[in-house]
């Protein structure tokens, strides 16, 4: 059996608001195993992004414990959590967040610059990542010269370039049409199968849900279902 990559024990998240705070996650527990291709599903406002931000060490839970790669995330120093993100976690966003002034190549290269990798190694890794998403021929283009589907594929390449253990994708298909959604899901699934990267999605898109091998359903910050699917 694969090791547990993410371990969530009874966490709650309360956002401070005017009166008393808003309970965004309510006593939630969840384990995610290395190599999974799973999703957090639920209506808008159900706490999906909140949960992903906590797993991604961008935010902290109010109570309970979260271990990512065996580390208690709320006990990490900012340096340690930055290092964890830099090395082990890739992010994909609904809006691709490509930097408009940089080329496709440079956008994908950025995470490696932060890791202070040597130029030759960077080049190899960037070309590999662009190959995974099939955009080698677009590497000199600027983001505004790409279609939506191509843009999101660049952001997958950017998340994958450092070959992280875990990729967190928050509603990655929300801005894409069916054809492009399926295209990028195929790409991610292939990466998952080929090199075993763990993917955690948040979505309420049925096209995405049918790809997932495991679906955790959230409603009002509570886990209401945790299903393993077979199919496709």
């Amino acid at each position: 059996m694969n090791e547990t990559l993410v371990q969530i024990n009874n966490i709650s998240k309360i956002y401070p608001t005017g009166e008393g705070g808003f309970l965004a996650l309510n006593k939630l527990s969840l384990d995610i195993t290395d190599g999974e291709f799973m999703g957090i599903v639920g209506p808008s406002g159900s706490g999906k992004t909140t949960l992903l931000n906590i797993i991604g060490t961008l935010d902290e839970q109010t109570s309970g414990e979260v271990l990512v790669l065996g580390k208690h995330v709320n006990k990490l120093s900012s340096k340690e959590s930055a290092s964890l993100r830099a090395n082990k976690i890739g992010f994909i966003f609904q809006t691709y967040n490509l930097l408009p002034v940089y080329t496709v190549y440079e956008n994908v290269e950025l995470p490696l610059l932060l890791l202070q990798m040597k130029k030759e190694e960077r080049r190899k890794a960037v070309m590999q990542a662009l190959e995974w998403v099939g955009l080698t021929d677009k590497m000199h283009s600027r983001p505004n010269q790409l279609s939506g589907g191509q843009g999101q594929r660049v952001s997958i390449a950017r998340a994958m370039v450092k070959t992280p253990r875990l990729v967190i994708a928050d509603e990655p298909t929300a801005n894409l049409d069916t054809e492009n959604s399926i295209n990028i899901l195929d790409t991610m699934l292939k990466i998952n199968q080929d090199i075993g990267t763990t993917f955690i999605f948040s979505t309420h898109d049925p096209k995405v849900i049918q790809y997932l091998k495991r679906v955790v359903t959230l409603i009002d910050g509570e886990k209401v279902k945790d299903d393993y699917q077979t199919g496709i």
Binding site: K79, N87, N97, L99, P111, L114
Partner: peptide
């Protein structure tokens, strides 16, 4: 801020 958020998410420090 988008760029900064992104870079922080990539593990850059403030």
């Amino acid at each position: 801020y988008g760029e900064f958020g992104l870079r922080l998410a990539m593990g850059e420090r403030k």
